[in-house]
């Protein structure tokens, strides 16, 4: 469905040191710098796949999405979505895709979302009954019936994002480019938006490409991830495989009913977090069963759980100490 070959994008940006004097100097003589946002990025995405773009801030994720949706021209390399070159902006192509941006909105600020929906219906030349049926279906799924008649500016961030999704999906696109669709939303709203995206993908077979600040989004939605760092593609594949490769260990979190004897914990594994009545151990995957058995036998355990290490940590390590996606963790 999507095919990118040796994609490069270079921006020319104006740079100057801070200070008034430098600002005045830059009025007369401007210094420009070439910034490579993407460099030789190639990948293929099959129809119906859900793929996550990961990488630190400024890695080139959004640039990639904008090239795929035809907004930006690549400096070199080629890209096709379906049978189309996005930059041609063919009507059939634009009917096929949608781009949702968590940081920008298409809803008309002073008018109710229903007005934006009506406008999109006209823009995409959708038959009225078909558009009405889609709108009703989306509105019911997202439970925003009472909201679509209220002026957009009176809606909360989460409510606005749900309305954005309806506006973006009214024409039933087959390829979804989602650029941080859950940014700023609370945990339960994030989960609902995620759930909605998954259901849309499963019921329509649409291809989904997602970037997100929240690793949980990517972990929950995308079996495959493409990691971009400083414009280069550094990993393309299964998220769990990447996790196991970087951190082939499990986390055992234990709660104690009383203080464990000193030294007992260290014998079980590497202690990565510790408070008075709680401890987390990092244990190689193969030794987990043994470690749990030993812990239950030797320590005053009231509760115990085994989990994978947090994805943020894995990505941080993978990207050489940079916080993944700005290192923002969901609560």
């Amino acid at each position: 469905m999507i095919r990118a070959r040796k994609l490069c994008k270079t921006y020319r940006v104006h740079r100057r040191p801070p200070g008034l004097l430098e600002a005045l100097r830059s009025v007369v003589r401007r210094r420009y710098e070439e910034v490579r946002a993407l460099c030789d990025v190639s990948f293929d995405i099959a129809p119906g796949e859900r793929v996550g773009f990961l990488g630190p801030n400024g890695a080139g994720k959004t640039t990639a999405l904008k090239i795929l949706s035809g907004l930006l021209y690549p400096t070199s390399g080629s890209v096709t979505v379906g049978d189309f070159v996005p930059q041609d902006r063919r009507t059939e192509f634009l009917h096929m895709i949608t781009l949702v941006m968590g940081q920008k909105q298409q809803l008309l600020w002073d008018l109710p979302p229903a007005e934006t929906f009506a406008m999109n219906r006209a823009l995409f030349d959708l038959p009225r009954d078909e558009a009405d049926a889609t709108q009703k279906e989306l509105v019911d799924l997202l439970e925003i019936g009472p909201l679509i008649g209220k002026p957009t500016r009176q809606l909360s961030l989460g409510e606005r994002m749900k309305c954005e999704l309806v506006a973006a999906l009214l024409h039933r696109p087959r390829v979804l480019f989602l650029d941080e669709p859950t940014i700023g939303l609370d945990v339960s709203m994030q989960a609902r938006v995620r759930d909605f995206i998954r259901r849309y993908n499963e019921s329509t077979g649409a291809t989904v490409l997602l970037t997100s600040h929240y690793m949980e989004d990517v972990a929950a939605l995308c079996p495959r991830v493409i990691v971009i760092d400083k414009g280069h593609l550094v990993y393309d594949g299964d998220l769990r495989t990447l996790a196991r490769r970087i951190r082939p260990e499990k986390r055992i979190t234990m709660h104690f009913s009383s203080l464990p004897a000193p030294g007992e914990l260290d014998r079980l594994g590497n202690c990565v977090a510790r408070s008075e009545l709680q401890a987390t151990l990092a244990v190689p995957a193969a030794q987990v069963t043994e470690a749990v058995r030993a812990a239950l036998g030797r320590l005053p355990i009231s509760d115990i759980s085994v989990e994978d290490p947090p994805l943020e940590e894995i990505m941080q390590e993978f990207l050489g100490g940079q916080p993944a996606n700005g290192g923002v963790r969901s609560a």
Binding site: K66, L71, L94, L99, K104, Q105, N120, F124
Partner: peptide, 18 residues
Amino acid sequence: RKGTLDFVLLKPADAQFL
């Protein structure tokens, strides 16, 4: 300036007309 022209360019109609 704000980048919201993105949404205009993503619509299947002549951008100049829109």
